[in-house]
Structure formats: C-alpha cells, structure tokens
C-alpha cells in the first residue's frame, strides 16, 4: 500500500482530533451563561430590529424583558398585542393591552394647498432644507416633501405622493415604530391611536403662526380661530400657540369639529361619506381671518 496515503490520513486525523480537543476546552473556558428564556423571547419577536420599542434591537428588548421579569412598559409596535401576549404567557407574566397606534401626517400643505413660492435645488434631504430655509411653500412648519420619513421607514409604509408632494402613510404597513417621527426634522408626524375601524380625526396642521400669516402660505392651515374648541363637547381639543390639538384619548370621533373648521384643517379618515351640507365655509373663513388678526 502506498505509505504516503497512510501518512496523509493519519496526520490529518491527528490534526483534527487535536483541534477538537482544543476547541472543546476553549468552549468550556469561555462559555457565556445566558438565560435560555432570552432566546425564547427573541424568537417570538418579529426580528425587524426597528427600534420602535426603544431598544437597539429585538434581542436587547428580549434581554430587558427577561431581566426585569415584568412586561410593564414594554411594547413591540410591529408585533402588537398578540406578540406581547405570547411572550407574557411563555414567561408566566401578564401583558397589558395597548391600543394599536399609527403614524399620522399632520400637514396638508400639498402643492395645490400651499403653492411653491421658490424652487429648491440642492441636497435632497429634509433635515438640510429645514436648516437652510423655511421651505418652498414658505411655511416654516410644513412638510418639506423630500422624504426623510420614507428613507427612515423599515416597513416600506411611506411613499411620497407625486401629485401632492406629501408622504402617504400606509394603513396596513405602518407598525407605529416611530422611526419617521424621529426622522422628520419638523416633527410633523405623530403617533396616534389607530382608532376603531381605522377611523381617526386630527388637526392636519402644526403651524404656530398667527392665522393671517399661516393662511398666506397655505390655504388649509389651522388659523387658531378656536371654533373647534368651542364645538367639542368632550374637552378633547386644546388651543395653544395658535394651533388646535385633538387629544386622541378623549376624542369620541363625533366629527363636529370637522364640520366647524373654516379652513378644513381638521381631517377625518375612513369615515363613511355624509350628506353634503350647504356651505357657508367662505363666510366663516373671512370671519375667522379678521378675528385672528386682532
């Protein structure tokens, strides 16, 4: 028999065996003792690592839950209640029910409502435009439309509508991780309650300027007239710095304020259509304007 063949087999086997022994001892020596439950929890989490829970990634959250042995204050937005319940049952804990949230764009300054006054040419990031100037429409609070939110979204839930130049948030895809809220330099996007049957009412404007000034740049700006505050029976609307805000915890979705708003700044989403009323909006508008100027 060819001896070189034998030598080769023997030396390789010896090499392999010694490597196995070394590896075994090294593995023993540097063993990391980890709670096995962390793996269980991490497997239940969606694994998107979106950061919506406030941790750097899914595994970090799993570690934190296991360490704390308590589910309070933990929420995986993409997983939602179901995931949290599953984790809770696996760990023998209890998970609080939270209402599903969704990202909402609080600006309606589309190309038609807030026409361009100047043209912007340069780096296509909202953050920079926000630093540089008020924006093409002149509204210093309005959406810039260059899509920092789109790039920040890991779930492909936001697109820029080419007609309005505003981002559109998908009802189905959005998991309310809050990445876009952080990415928007003007904090236009807010996380709000998803609402029954996805019905939501919100003020689609965050312009704190006086009514007349805001109106100059955008026809659907909140002018701070306060009509909605008066009409709301549930104390859900507050007026601060010339801007109305609807508290989604108090709002009962009665839609009174939507009808009252002279500039159509209050939006209703996913409601069945209602009978068109005879419009006195024009009169209201001018009345509101003169009022706010004082």
């Amino acid at each position: 028999m060819n001896t070189s063949f034998l030598y080769a087999v023997l030396s390789l086997s010896a090499l392999g065996a010694s490597a196995a022994v070394i590896l075994y001892f090294v593995a023993q020596k540097f063993k990391v003792i980890e709670d096995p439950r962390i793996d269980v929890v991490a497997d239940l989490l969606p694994g998107a690592n979106c950061g919506g829970c406030g941790f750097a990634g899914c595994r970090n959250m799993a570690e934190a839950i296991v360490k704390k042995e308590n589910m309070d204050g933990f929420l995986c937005p993409p997983g939602g209640n179901e995931t949290m319940k599953k984790i809770a049952s696996d760990l023998g804990l209890e998970a609080k029910e939270t209402e599903p949230m969704i990202a909402v764009l609080r600006c309606n300054g589309s190309l038609a409502n807030a026409p361009q006054k100047v043209k912007y040419d340069g780096a296509t990031t909202c953050a920079y435009v926000h630093m540089l100037f008020a924006g093409e429409s002149g509204c210093p609070y309005g959406c810039i439309g260059l899509g920092d939110c789109v790039t920040s979204c890991l779930f492909d839930a936001i697109n820029i509508d080419p007609v309005t130049n505003l981002p559109v948030i998908s009802n189905e895809k959005c998991v309310a991780c809050g990445a876009c809220v952080k990415a928007c330099p003007r904090t236009i996007i807010e996380l709000r309650k998803k609402g029954k049957k996805d019905r939501r009412i919100f003020v689609s404007c965050i312009n704190k300027e006086k009514g007349a000034v805001a109106k100059k740049n955008c026809s659907v700006a909140c002018i701070g007239c306060g009509k909605c505050v008066k009409v709301c029976k549930f104390d859900a609307i507050t007026m601060e710095n010339n801007i109305a805000y609807i508290d989604f915890n108090k709002c009962t979705l009665c839609r009174k304020c939507v009808e009252e708003c002279p500039t159509a700044a209050i939006h209703e989403l996913n409601f069945p259509p209602r009978k068109p009323k005879s419009e006195t909006a024009d009169n209201n508008e001018t009345a509101a304007e003169t009022k706010s100027e004082n």
């Binding site: 361009q116 100047v118 043209k119 912007y120 040419d121 340069g122 780096a123 540089l132 100037f133 093409e136």
Partner: peptide, 9 residues
C-alpha cells in the same frame, strides 16, 4: 418671471 431658486452656498 419664473420662481426664484433657493439653495445652499
């Protein structure tokens, strides 16, 4: 007149 352009220096 066309719109003015704004850009960074």
């Amino acid at each position: 007149m066309a719109l003015l352009t704004v850009s960074g220096s």
